[in-house]
Amino acid sequence: MCCTFAEKLEEVLLKEVIYLMQKDFVLEWRQKYAFNGMLLYVGSTVFICYLSFSLRFGGLEVPVWNALYWIILLFTAVNAIAKGFAQESRGRLLYYYSVVSPQGVILAKMIYNAALMLVLSLLCFTFYAVVIGNPVQDVGMFLVTIVLGAVGFATSLTMISGIAAKAANTGTLMAVLSFPVMVPMLLMLMKMSKNAIDGLDPSVSLDEALVLLAINMIVVTVSYILFPYLWRS
C-alpha cells in the first residue's frame, strides 16, 4: 500500500481541479467575445476617467490616481467574476454535480478567476499608465500589490458570485453583497500601492501584505467549507 485514503482523495481532487480549470480556459477561448468585452470595459472606463478629469493638462494627484485605479479594478472584478457562475447553464451544473466534487468546482473557479483578474488588472495598469500617466516609483512592489489584489478579489468574489447566481436579481446582489466584504482588502491594497507609488522600502508594506494573505486564507477556507452547501440547491 503506497497511499492512504486521504492522499488518494487529495490526488482525485487535484485532478478534478486541473480538469475543471482546463475546461474554463477552453470555454473562455471559444467565447472570446466575453473576454474581449471585459477588455473593452476596462479600456473605456479608463478613458472615461481620463476625459472626465480632463487630464490633458497636468496629471492626477497621487492619492486620487491610486484610489481611481483600485475603484476601476473593483468594478471590473465584480463584472468579470459575476458571470463565472451565471454563465453555466442549469443542465451543465447538474452534470458537474453528478461527476465532480463541489470542492473541486470552487477551487478551480477560484484559480481560474485569479488568472483572469491577473490578466485584466495588469492590462488595466498598462493602459492606465499610458493614458493617465505613471507616478509609480517602485514598479516591482506595485506589481506584487496587483498580484495580491487580483488573487484577493478573485477568491472573495468567486464565493459571492456563487451566492448571487442563485438569487433573482444577480447584478445588484453581486455589488451589494461583495462591496462591504471587500472593503478591508481594498483598504490594505490601497495603502500598499500608495507605499509602492511613493517608493518606500518594501518592509513598510510587510504588515499589509501579511494581513492580505491572512484575509485570503480565511476567505478560501470558508468558501471551501461552505460551497458544498451552496451547491446542493
Binding site: I163, A167, L177, V181, V219, S223, L226, L230, R232, S233
Partner: peptide, 13 residues
C-alpha cells in the same frame, strides 16, 4: 440555506 451560507461567510469576513 443560501442566506445561512452568506451569514457565515460575511461573519468570517
Amino acid at each position: 440555506r443560501i442566506s445561512a451560507v452568506y451569514n457565515i461567510f460575511a461573519f468570517a469576513a
